[in-house]
Computed example of a mutant assay.
Amino acid sequence: MNAVVPTITLADIEAAAVRLKGQAVETPLIESPALSERLGLRVLIKPETLQRVGAFKFRGAYNRLVQLSEAERRVGVVAFSSGNHAQGVALAAKLLGIPAVIVMPADAPKVKVEATKGYGADVRFYDRLGGKTREAIAAEIAQERGGAVVVPAFDDPHIVAGQGTVGLEMVRQAAALGATLDAVIAPISGGGLLAGIATAVKALSPKTAILGAEPAGFDDTRQSLAKGERVTIRPQGRSYCDALESPFPGEITFPVMRRTVAEVAAVTDAEVAEAMRVAFATLKLVVEPGGAAGLAALLAGKVTLAAGACVGLVLSGGNVDPEFYARVLRGEA
């Protein structure tokens, strides 16, 4: 018998917003005349680079952990992530006094590893190209620690609801600017961010198109939407977008994206690097590769938009390795 897949509603996202008040940053919605003129659109930017831990992931992590029982808090949590979810869980755990173990790939960006450790989490490394999966390692650690709660990166209704507060804020902030969003574009890994945003935006602004962007070679969501069912890919190599390398969309997130997402673009490393340079030069923002995927899709003309459309662009994170970032800015990557 198939398990019932949890659903996420606008009420769940509004409840998450209440929990996050005073904890998460309500990041601004910024209009960029220079970018708007370049693209022939009205571009309103949601810089989650300015969020706590430098990425939207804090929203979902805190919303999940703050709802743990006292008994669960004493035992602690285990998460697995290449970096941004790791930092989000680590900081949320620190704020709530919860022990946290984070399973990270050995090749995760140093800046993300050091930040995760800096929040007090116990980091355990694994080889993403061989051996046990991160899910199996996390499950073993949870059992060893007496039933610690495993906090997934995206396939959890509380995580998705927390990420959905990005969309909730965008619609209300756009209205305050006298704008109606014709489209919203955000990066996709497992789909927690886009599914949460889509749930909020479609409830408040049904005509707004939901667009996604993911790395070429890691376009599991695009393939899944085309096939009408979840597809697991077997990538050859790596992407600059280390934060977007999930090989499949989530069991919870995919049905939401299937109902709501109009289009998904696959962006190349070269397009992502160019988007990072534009974000630096034009927007004066440091954006990591995965965080720049939506901007890359807009700059490369890979999504369908009418001339002059008002587009909400989510820059989802800014945790980029300094040496790699310098190479990008010099045009060497």
Score class of each variant (00 low, 15 high):
Val4Arg: 11
Val4Gln: 11
Thr9Ser: 15
Leu10Val: 06
Leu10Asn: 06
Asp12Glu: 05
Glu14Tyr: 00
Ala16Gly: 12
Val18Ile: 14
Val25Pro: 01
Leu35Ile: 04
Glu37Trp: 00
Arg38Gln: 14
Val43His: 01
Glu48Ile: 03
Thr49Gly: 11
Leu50Ala: 12
Leu50Ser: 13
Arg52His: 13
Phe56Glu: 05
Arg64Phe: 12
Ser69Ile: 06
Glu70Gln: 15
Ala71Gln: 13
Val77Glu: 03
Asn84Trp: 07
Ala90Cys: 10
Ala90His: 04
Lys94Arg: 14
Leu96Trp: 02
Gly97Lys: 14
Gly97Ser: 11
Val103Pro: 00
Val113Tyr: 01
Val113Asn: 03
Thr116Met: 05
Thr116Lys: 03
Lys117Leu: 15
Phe125Thr: 07
Asp127Gln: 13
Arg128Ala: 12
Leu129Arg: 14
Ala138Asn: 04
Ala138Gln: 05
Ala148Ile: 02
Val150Asn: 04
Val151Ser: 02
Phe154Ala: 10
His158Phe: 14
Gly162Leu: 07
Val166Ser: 04
Gly167Arg: 08
Glu169Val: 02
Arg172His: 12
Arg172Ser: 11
Ala174Ile: 08
Ala176Pro: 03
Thr180Phe: 09
Leu181Lys: 14
Ala183Trp: 09
Gly191Val: 09
Leu194Phe: 06
Leu194Ser: 02
Leu194Pro: 09
Thr199Lys: 05
Ala200Thr: 00
Val201Trp: 13
Leu204Ala: 11
Ser205Leu: 15
Pro206Gln: 13
Ile210Arg: 10
Glu214Val: 10
Glu214Pro: 10
Asp219Pro: 14
Asp219Leu: 00
Asp220Pro: 00
Ser224Thr: 08
Ala226Phe: 09
Arg230Phe: 07
Thr232Lys: 15
Arg234Gly: 00
Tyr240Leu: 15
Cys241His: 08
Cys241Ser: 15
Ser246Leu: 07
Phe248Ser: 13
Thr253Asn: 09
Glu263Trp: 03
Ala266Cys: 10
Val272Lys: 00
Glu274Gly: 11
Val278Gln: 00
Leu283Ser: 04
Leu285Pro: 02
Glu288His: 06
Gly290Phe: 03
Leu299His: 07
Ala300Ile: 03
Thr304Ala: 13
Cys310Phe: 01
Val311Cys: 08
Leu313Thr: 02
Leu315Glu: 01
Pro322Cys: 08
Tyr325Ser: 03
Ala326Cys: 03
Leu329Thr: 06
Arg330Gly: 12
Ala333Gly: 05
